[in-house]
Design a protein around this nucleic acid. Structure first.
Lengths: 373, 373
DNA sequence: TTGTATGCGTTATCAC
DNA sequence: GTGATAACGCATACAA
């Protein structure tokens, strides 16, 4: 061609004009008049080349907005600088306010080590996730919130070489890193608080579809026993509680029993706030007629002046990010386990019960299944 | 058949024992006794091979938990099935409650087309993001919430071949797809509502660091003018308002003026709730002494019984996801523009002002240089 | 129907 | 210091 002997600047023009695609290291090398190896060296392993070459390469790369392809680079180096994060909960609504705090914590933690987050959005709304999903080379490690992987799936993942940190899960293989919160302490503190206020008829309202909820339920039963309080079966119903409306039904069920509780401990703030609304709709005053306590200390809990247990979701995320870092540095899963403390926050929805018996203005008979007070 | 089984299973064992790394297509090919091309064909282009071969390949792949490397596959196909999402806001706190709704919408929208989200977390806490950041081949397209990219950066990105959808941004190149909300309508409705209640001294409290805030501020000024109300300069201060404490200072400033407003329109719910608290701390009753309105209809707004403008954050996310899909199918950016409607939600923090005059304990109103009271 | 060969863009290992 | 070149794992066009 006529232009074979053009100066590099015009070559740059040619390249710039001809590429719809992004410039590659080859383009940079050609423009700078050096080999690809030299370009790679200059750009990555600073220090083993002449200043003149260095300048040429840098300028060529900058002028054509060269950007190394991250995929190929990962292929070469074996590391993606990306962490997979699976949180089922992003699909759910206000029942789980803590997701964003969690993500923020993870982001902050990973930013410290310049890693990005691959947020798995592709999973279906229902059913278990294929563990192989995390093994396609896109991520260096995975952080798994509950709800996606079956125990077997987690087992399989654990036996692979992918570092994994589970969150809010207790039924996991011993070798898997995990960050949990101290559910039992939180519930014990809540029950203790209520007992000190004079409550003896304490109910527990919660779904049971995650380890956390199960632990909280068990802790409630333990706490009741510890205080010599025998919870009636209908005070701790095992319902689905997946939507707001469910809380109303559950409340009807609970209020339809012969002996009403004077306090309700809820599995999380979402349930507690739904319970608050259901109670108020039915003419009950909180905390005069019934006390209500939640779990999580979400933003809504603060607004609702809800007594609740504060869990450090952001710290859970940061801890998980640090564990990921540790695992990538060779730590074993067994060494990366944390149970973060929680703290009871007493607010306006809990108070002493009205003198032993149900209050005077409470409905005599709740319109459900002929039950009476 | 039996012979085949024995043969392949023993080979499988050998392979399984030898690999610490993940099996590659070569391993599968060897185990199945076919070539890599055949494996690839069987796994991807169904239909052009014998049943026997097909069965062998499938079984070999399944038994060794073969998973194609997504990086290489992307390299090959030119598509990553991943969308980059940049939201600065994940770092911020309760000032921006809508982030999770947004993410949920994006996730739902992308799940429809089996794409995942690369959530950029690596950006520093301050300063502009390098546009080249999104051009390293890891994503097929990008969704950009405000705050990260400078206008020039966005321009540069727009001139690249990467499909981009901006959110909540109005000052963008004409060719860039965008999803916005109708800020002006929301503010006009709010001011209209307050005017109908009898307010004339209406203030505007908001930061101004994003397009949305600026639009809302301008809409406030327009609405005031439309109602022949000349807002005093001190009723629409231009402050930073980046933390909760700032709202208190701003409130002190506003309440320290000679003529007090009877209503405060806020830039978002976070500001409004901070304003509510600041007002109550200073002995003002809402809405008796002052009315307050927000913007967004976050969960906190519902809890606080705040009059506000509902914005469909989740729908913003879903729309963005759909635009991404459209762009990837060849649509031009100009064709992918949406301004989603908002809706005024009147709640308990707005009411008629106390009978024309300021309340008894408020400082007397003193007219200043032609300002209409 | 199946196998072979090529190339994707980069890093890294060697010669020079 | 610098430049060839192998290798990464896969898809695909093409040959058999």
């Amino acid at each position: 061609m006529v232009y074979d002997d053009e100066l590099s600047s015009s070559i740059l023009c040619k390249v710039a004009l001809s590429v719809a695609r992004h410039p590659t290291i080859n383009d940079v090398a050609r423009a700078a008049g050096v080999s690809v190896g030299t370009v790679s060296n200059v750009l990555n392993r600073k220090g083993r080349h002449s200043d003149a070459t260095r300048a040429k390469v840098i300028r060529a790369a900058a002028s054509m907005h060269y950007r190394p392809n991250a995929l190929i680079r990962s292929l070469q180096t074996g590391t993606t600088n990306t962490i997979g994060v699976f949180t089922w909960r992003v699909y759910l609504g206000a029942w789980h306010d803590m997701t964003l705090d969690l993500l923020r914590g993870i982001s902050k933690g990973l930013a410290e080590t310049s890693r990005d987050v691959l947020l798995y959005a592709r999973h279906p709304h229902e059913g278990d996730v294929d563990p192989g999903y995390f093994l396609d080379g896109r991520v260096d490690a995975a952080i798994l919130a509950p709800g996606g992987l079956s125990p077997e799936g987690l087992e399989q993942l654990a036996s692979s070489s992918l570092p994994v940190v589970t969150l809010y899960q207790s039924r996991i293989p011993a070798s898997v890193a995990s960050v949990r919160i101290d559910n039992a302490s939180g519930i014990h503190a809540t029950v203790e608080h209520l007992v000190k206020l004079g409550h003896r008829r304490i109910a527990f309202l919660s779904p049971a579809y995650s380890d956390d909820f199960c632990e909280r339920r068990q802790a409630y039963l333990d706490a009741m026993e510890r205080h010599d309080l025998a919870p009636r079966a209908e005070w701790a119903p095992l319902g689905e509680l997946e939507r707001e409306g469910d809380a109303g039904e559950m409340m009807d069920y609970m209020l339809g029993t012969r002996v009403l509780p004077t306090a309700i401990v809820c599995g999380n703030d979402g349930v507690a706030i739904a319970a608050l609304r259901a109670l108020r709709e039915r003419g009950f005053a909180v905390p005069q007629d019934l006390s209500v306590a939640g779990f999580d200390d979400s933003a809504a809990a603060q607004s609702e002046d809800l007594t609740t247990v504060r869990q450090p979701a952001e710290e859970v995320g940061m801890t998980a990010a640090r564990f990921v870092e540790a695992l990538l540095c060779g730590a074993r899963g067994e060494e990366c386990r944390a149970v973060l403390p929680v703290q009871l926050i007493t607010r306006g929805t809990t108070a002493s019960p009205r003198d032993g018996r149900a209050s005077a203005h409470m409905p005599l008979a709740v319109p459900m299944k002929g039950a009476s007070v």
